[in-house]
Each structure stands twice: as structure tokens, then as C-alpha cells.
Amino acid sequence: MLELLVNGKRLKTRSSPDTPLLWFLREELGLTGTKYSCGVGFCGSCSVLINGESKRSCLLTIRDCIGSSIVTIEGIPQDHPVKRAWFEERVPECGYCQPGQIISAVALLNKNPFPSAEDINIAMDNNLCRCGTYNRIKRAILRASRAIKS
């Protein structure tokens, strides 16, 4: 039995410790907000917060996460400044990459609440979007940053 901490809840699982975190979250816990897209840690669609940092869940096993805090898109409160900014800036189109984008944005603002445009580029450059929402993502992060400030 492994014990994991997901979205603030302690839970036990009989899954093999080698199970990729992505499939564990999606298939076993039903947290399908975390998306599969490239499977090799390149696109960022499967990003989750591990102890506050944005990590690719397709590259982690559940063994890697024992003792860590795992937060998925479902664990970010609906009134979180980042989620609100995402709505106000009308970010999503197809929406498939957005949970990963939001996770990376939350991680960035946790570490650096007032990022410059360049800071945002660096932090977000490994989260791919095919619909072309990057400019609105940038604006949403700046908006969330202003909301945190005030």
C-alpha cells in the first residue's frame, strides 16, 4: 500500500509503484483534467504541481511522489486569481492544453508573484498550445499577478 497526498487529501493505493502518475490520476482517481498529449514530457499538457512546482506527470511514477504534495487542476480553487484571470481574458479555445498551462502559471506566480514578460516566456515556453492562445495566456498571467498584488 502506497500513501499519496493528492489535492490535500491523503489516499492509499494498491497500484504498482511504477505506474505513471498521469495514468494513476486519470484512470484510477478519475482526475481527467490532467491531459495526455505527448507522453515524453515535451508539451506540458499533463503538468501537475509537485510541492508547488510544475512537473510533467507523464514522466513521474507514483513512487516518485511518495511524501510529496500533488495538486492537479481540480485542486486549484475555482476562485483562484489565475483561474479567474483565465476566464476574464477568455483564454481557452479547444481548451485541451489549458489545465497544464494554468498549473505552470500557478507555479510561476507562487515563486515569482510579479513576473516580467520575459519571466513568463521562460516559465511557459514548454507548455504547447496549438490553438494559438499564447498572447491571452500572457495577459491572464499579468492580470492574475495584478490581482495578487492588490
Binding site: I73, E74, W86, R90, V91, P92, Q98, I102
Partner: peptide, 8 residues
């Protein structure tokens, strides 16, 4: 569909 897509 914005909120559903933002909330996952």
C-alpha cells in the same frame, strides 16, 4: 465552455 475548460 470557458469555465469547464478552465476547471478541468
Amino acid at each position: 465552455d470557458a469555465k469547464a475548460k478552465i476547471n478541468g
